[in-house]
Design a protein around this nucleic acid. Structure first.
Lengths: 369, 369
DNA sequence: CATACTTGATTAAACGTTTAATCTGTGGTT
DNA sequence: AACCACAGATTAAACGTTTAATCAAGTATG
C-alpha cells in the first residue's frame, strides 16, 4: 500500500513549508504567483489528493451532505438520487444516503444519524403527512410549494393545471381523478391544479386508492369500468404508478385507450414510454430542483448568517415548472360521450399502430437492465 | 452553536486522561472495569458523540463505503440502496453514493471519485458488459455468479430455472423469452436457467428488445401477437419492465392473460403487484445479497490478509437463491394450443375477478406516493 | 535615517482521536 | 529482601490539514 502523499511531501520536495503549499493550493494566504505555479505543478505531477479527513478535522466541515428519502421504495428515488448527487458533486460535496426504512418516525432518526455521521447538511424528501422538525442544522426540504418550510420542489399545482388544460382542450368534460391518500401535499396540489383548469361545467369524481384498499383489500379493482358507465372519459392519475394500474385495469376490461377514454399520469416514471399505449404524463425538472435545494443548503452551511442575499427564506420555496409529456394515452374525447354502455360495447380494439410517436420528447428510452 | 464535546471534556470532568477515556469507550487498552463503567456512564450522560473526522484521521479509516450503481435509472435502485445501507449501517459504516451518469466508462471514474473522497471500500453493481478493473482498494461486485470477480449476487440461473419449471408444470410447451441485450451476464444466466428447465420437446423463441429497437425505433411494437399465431403460449421476460411491456401490448391486442397466454417477469418491481393482472415474477433476496457483499468488503478492509477464514475468494461468489412469486399472470396452458388464430379469436375478456390473491407473499404492497 | 507598511514566506497551534511507549505501584516469586 | 511481572493508569506522538501569529526583508513615508 503506497502511503498516500500529503502536503508535507510536496513541501519537502520543493523545500518550502507546508503552510505555503496549503496556501498555494487553496489560493488563500499570501503566496507569490510564481511559487504558487510551481507548487501546483508539483502537486499535479505527484498526483496529490488532499485528505478529506484532515481537512474535515481542521475546518469542522465534512463536505458531505445527507440525503433522506422517506419513501425509499418510491420509483422516483433513482432520479432524485442522481440529481442530488450531481448538484452536490458540482459544489464539491459528497452524498451520504440515509434510510428511514419506510417507518413513520424513523425519518427523524435517519436525519440525526446522518448528522452524527458528520453531514454538513441534509436534503429531505419527507414522507407524506409529516412535518420536518427544525434541527439545529442546515436542512433543505423538497416537498411541495404548499408545504411550510419547503425549500424547492416542482410546481405540482401548475403541473396539475397543465394536465387539466390538456384534457379539457381534447374535449373531455367528465373526469375521474385518481390519488393515493389525502394527506399528501404533493397530491393535493396536483389535484387542486387539475380541478382548477377544468371548465366550469366539468364533472369530477375523486378516487382515493388507500381508502379503497382499506375496504376491499390491497390490489383490489378500482372499479373504473363503472365510472365509464357514468360517463367518465378521462382518468387523471396523480402518479404514473396509479395511471399504470388504471391502464391495465381498463385494457383488461376491453376499453380502448385513448379511443374510448384517456389516461394521464404524473412523474414520467421509467415505464411510461414503454407500455402500450405510452403514457401522457408530467415530468419534474429534477436537475433544477436539486440545484436549488443544494444551493440553498450550501448557503445555509457556508453563509453562516441568515439575512444574506436578501432572500431569507421565501414562504413556499422555489416552485419549478413541470413539463407536459404528451404520448399516446391521451386523445380527443369520443364524439358520442360513451355514456351508458350496454354490457359489451363495440370498442376499437386495435389502435396500436399509431405511427411514430412524434410527441414523445424523451430522447431514447433508457429502460436498460 | 454548542461546540460538540470531545474526549477531553469527559476526561476533564472525571479527572482522568483522554487516553483512558478513549480506551474505556473502545474497550481496547487496559482500564479497570470499575472506571470503565463510570466513564461510559459519564459519556452517555453528556451525550458524547465521537468525531468521525478525528477518528478517520487517526485510524486512516473513514467508516464509509461507496455505492456505485452503473445503471442508476434502474427501478431496482431503491431496493439495492436500501439493502446496502442497512447492511452497512449494521456494520457501522455509512454509504456514499456515486453516479456514473449512465455513461459507459464513467463507472471507473465514479469509483475513483469515491475512493478519493475517502471511502474505505466500494460496492459496485456494474453495467452490463463491463468488467471491473482491479483497483488497489477493497471492492465488492454484485453482478452474476457467471461473472468473474463477482462477490455476491442472486442465483439468476436458478431463478430462471424456477420460472422455466413453473411454466412447464403449467403445461406450456412453446415459449418466447424476452431479453434486452445479449451482453448482460445477468440476463444470460436467467435465460440459460429458463431454457434448462424446459422439457426436451419445448419450442423456444428468443427476443432481444435492443436489437428490435435498433431496427424499428425505440418503443416499437414487439410483435408478440404474431408469436401467438406461431403457437407461443408463454412469454418469459427477463425483467418485469419487459414483462410489463409485453402485458400491455398483449392486452391491447385483446389477448387474455393468463387465459390465452402466460407472462412472467423478473425482479418483483414495485408495480408487479399492482397491475391487472398482477405479475408472476422472481424476487431477489436483496437483504441477503447486501449482507454478503458488505461482509466480504469489510473482511477485505479490516482483515488485511487475504488468506483469512480459509475463504480466499470463491470463483463465482455467493449465489443467493431467488424466490418465485406466483401471481395472476401465469396460468395453465390453454387446452387447445392457441395455434393459428383466424383474425379475431374469441378470447376470454374478463378474468379479472380472480378472487383473492392468496399466492401473493408480498406483505402489503408498498406503492405509496 | 528611523519608522511604518507590504509582501512573501515560516512557525506553531489547533482540530479529536488512536495507540505505542512509559510510568507507578502492588503482589508474587525465589 | 531483592527481583520480576503485571494491572492500571498516563504521556506523548501521530494522522493531515487549516490558519492565526510571527518573522524577515524590501519598499514607501515622514
Amino acid at each position: 500500500m503506497a502511503p498516500r502523499l500529503n502536503l508535507s511531501d510536496i513541501a519537502k520536495a520543493l523545500g518550502v513549508s507546508v503552510a505555503t503549499v496549503s496556501n498555494a493550493l487553496s489560493g488563500k494566504g499570501r503566496v507569490s504567483e510564481e511559487l504558487a505555479r510551481v507548487i501546483r505543478a508539483k502537486a499535479k505531477e505527484l498526483g496529490y489528493i488532499p485528505s478529506l479527513a484532515g481537512r474535515a478535522l481542521s475546518t469542522g466541515r465534512s463536505q458531505v451532505l445527507g440525503l433522506v428519502l422517506a419513501d425509499i421504495g418510491h420509483p422516483l428515488f433513482p432520479q432524485f438520487a442522481q440529481a442530488i448527487e450531481n448538484a452536490a458533486a458540482a459544489a464539491g460535496y459528497g452524498v451520504l444516503i440515509g434510510d428511514s426504512r419506510g417507518e413513520i418516525d424513523a425519518q427523524t432518526r435517519a436525519i440525526n444519524r446522518l448528522i452524527e455521521r458528520g453531514a454538513d447538511g441534509i436534503v429531505v424528501v419527507p414522507r407524506h403527512g409529516t412535518r420536518i422538525a427544525n434541527i439545529g442544522h442546515p436542512i433543505a426540504v423538497i416537498d411541495s410549494p404548499s408545504t411550510p418550510g419547503n425549500t424547492a420542489s416542482a410546481d405540482h399545482w401548475d403541473g396539475g393545471a397543465q394536465i387539466g388544460a390538456h384534457l379539457s382542450a381534447l374535449g373531455h368534460r367528465s373526469f375521474a381523478i385518481i390519488g393515493l391518500h389525502s394527506d399528501s401535499n404533493v397530491q393535493n396540489d396536483r389535484i387542486g391544479g387539475i380541478k382548477a383548469a377544468l371548465p366550469r361545467q366539468a364533472r369530477v369524481e375523486l378516487l382515493w386508492i388507500d381508502e379503497l384498499e382499506r375496504k376491499r383489500g390491497p390490489g383490489a379493482e378500482l372499479g373504473l369500468l363503472r365510472l365509464i358507465d357514468k360517463g367518465v372519459t378521462a382518468f387523471a392519475a396523480v402518479s404514473d404508478l396509479h395511471a399504470l394500474r388504471a391502464v391495465t385495469e381498463l385494457q383488461r376490461g376491453g376499453v380502448s385507450i385513448p379511443g374510448d377514454v384517456s389516461v394521464t399520469g404524473f412523474d414520467d416514471l421509467i415505464w411510461a414510454g414503454v407500455i402500450a399505449p405510452t403514457l401522457t404524463t408530467m415530468r419534474m425538472n429534477m436537475a433544477r430542483i436539486a440545484e436549488l435545494a443544494i444551493a440553498d443548503l450550501i448557503r445555509q452551511i457556508e453563509g453562516g448568517r441568515d439575512s444574506e442575499d436578501g432572500v431569507p427564506h421565501r414562504p413556499g420555496g422555489h416552485a419549478v415548472p413541470m413539463e407536459l409529456i404528451i404520448r399516446q394515452s391521451s386523445g380527443p374525447a369520443p364524439a358520442a360521450p360513451a355514456g351508458k354502455r350496454p354490457g359489451g360495447n363495440p370498442r376499437r380494439a386495435d389502435n396500436q399502430a399509431n405511427g411514430s410517436i412524434l410527441e414523445d420528447t424523451r430522447e431514447g428510452t433508457d429502460h436498460k437492465c
